[in-house]
Computed example of a mutant assay.
Amino acid sequence: MRLVVAATGASGSIYLQRLLHYLGNGDHEVHFIASPYARQVIHEELGKLALPEGTIEHSDKSMNAPFASGSAKFDAMVVVPCSMGTMARIAHGTSESLILRAADVFLKERRKLILVPRETPWNLIHARNAVAVVEAGAILLPASPSFYSLPKSFEELADTVVWRILDQIGIDAPNACRWRETPEV
């Protein structure tokens, strides 16, 4: 698959790092973009982001990336974490950065666009922007971890969200814990 992974300035860099970990097996062409605020948050939360070998990194100021045009064939774009400001700008089609232009292209081409907000609580503006992006065709996948897998670390907890992202993209998550897939005792 050809994928775009973008990060914006919301807390939740662990979700980004875990998603990149799962995509880092070399089976997929992964393009990565981080907003300037995302880079600050990544530094605060992780120190350094570990990009898998072969990941193609782009500047958020560039408009020359192949996925900034509808003529380039890409399978999915994930914005993780997605700030409420980014969701608002996507909802209103501002397209002033590579992340926003790519999201606009994915929507207009009816390609899979997955937004992973981590913000809580929401105000009415957030809710209306969420409705707007869903009505435009995006998949809104809030970073709401599950606990039935009995996670023992932050990484295992974050993986419960990342497995859902992978499901939406159509990539198998071999270690994913599925509700009630094991026999009841």
Rank of each mutant, 00 (worst) to 15 (best):
M1G: 13
M1K: 12
M1S: 13
A7M: 08
G12Y: 10
S13R: 01
R18F: 07
R18K: 15
L19Y: 01
Y22Q: 15
H28P: 01
H31G: 06
P36E: 09
A38F: 08
R39W: 11
Q40F: 04
L46Q: 06
G47N: 07
K48P: 06
L51Y: 04
L51R: 05
H58F: 14
S62W: 14
A65F: 04
F67G: 00
A68P: 11
P81I: 00
C82F: 06
C82N: 03
S83A: 05
M84S: 04
G85N: 15
T86N: 02
M87K: 00
R89S: 06
R89L: 09
L100Y: 01
L100C: 04
A103I: 02
L107R: 05
K108W: 08
K108R: 12
R110D: 03
R110T: 01
R111V: 00
V116C: 03
P117I: 04
E119S: 08
W122H: 15
L124N: 15
L124V: 14
H126C: 05
H126W: 10
N129G: 12
V131K: 11
V133R: 02
V134D: 08
E135K: 13
E135W: 07
A136N: 09
A136M: 10
G137S: 05
L140I: 01
S149P: 01
S149Y: 05
P151F: 06
P151E: 10
E155V: 11
E155Y: 12
E156W: 13
L157K: 06
L157Q: 04
T160K: 11
I165F: 03
I165W: 00
Q168E: 15
G170Q: 07
I171D: 03
D172G: 07
D172I: 14
N175R: 15
A176N: 09
W179H: 13
